[in-house]
Simulated assay, not measured.
Amino acid sequence: MTYIDRLNNFNRWLESNALPANSQLMYFKLLGVFNRAGWSRSVQVDTPRLMQLTCCRKDAAYRARDKLVESGFISFHRGGKGNPSSYFLSEKTTVYATTNAAPNATHIKNKNNNKTKTINTNPIKTYDLKDIEALAGLRLPEHL
Rank of each mutant, 00 (worst) to 15 (best):
Y3A: 02
Y3H: 14
Y3C: 01
I4Q: 15
I4S: 15
D5H: 14
D5N: 15
L7V: 11
N8D: 14
N8F: 13
N8P: 00
N8V: 13
N9M: 12
R12T: 10
R12L: 13
W13S: 05
W13G: 05
L14M: 14
S16F: 12
S16M: 03
N17C: 06
A18M: 08
L19Q: 04
L19I: 07
A21P: 00
A21R: 13
F28K: 09
K29W: 04
L30P: 00
L31H: 05
L31I: 04
G32R: 07
V33I: 14
F34G: 08
N35Y: 12
R36T: 09
G38C: 08
G38L: 10
G38V: 05
W39H: 13
W39R: 12
S40E: 06
R41Q: 06
R41C: 03
R41L: 08
S42L: 05
Q44L: 01
V45S: 05
T47P: 00
P48K: 00
R49S: 03
M51Q: 15
Q52T: 05
L53N: 05
T54P: 00
C55I: 06
R57G: 08
K58L: 09
D59N: 11
D59P: 00
A61V: 01
A61N: 01
R63H: 07
A64W: 04
A64T: 02
A64P: 02
D66M: 07
D66T: 10
L68K: 06
L68R: 11
V69S: 03
S71L: 08
S71I: 01
G72R: 07
G72H: 10
I74L: 01
I74F: 04
I74E: 04
S75P: 01
S75W: 08
F76E: 04
H77K: 07
G79D: 07
G82W: 07
N83G: 03
P84I: 06
P84S: 05
S85E: 09
S85R: 03
S85P: 02
S86G: 01
Y87W: 10
Y87V: 03
F88G: 01
S90E: 13
E91H: 11
K92F: 07
T93I: 12
T93S: 06
T93P: 00
T94L: 15
Y96A: 07
Y96L: 11
Y96S: 10
A97G: 11
T98Q: 12
T98D: 12
N100R: 15
N100L: 14
A102D: 12
A102P: 09
H107I: 15
I108L: 14
N110Q: 13
K111N: 14
N112G: 09
N114I: 04
T116M: 11
K117D: 11
T118D: 00
I119M: 12
I119C: 05
N120I: 13
N120S: 14
N120W: 10
N122P: 03
P123T: 11
I124M: 15
T126W: 03
Y127D: 00
L129N: 07
L129I: 14
K130A: 14
I132T: 05
I132H: 03
E133G: 02
A134N: 13
A134G: 03
L135A: 13
A136D: 04
L140A: 08
L140I: 11
P141I: 02
H143C: 02
H143W: 06
H143V: 07
L144R: 04
L144D: 05
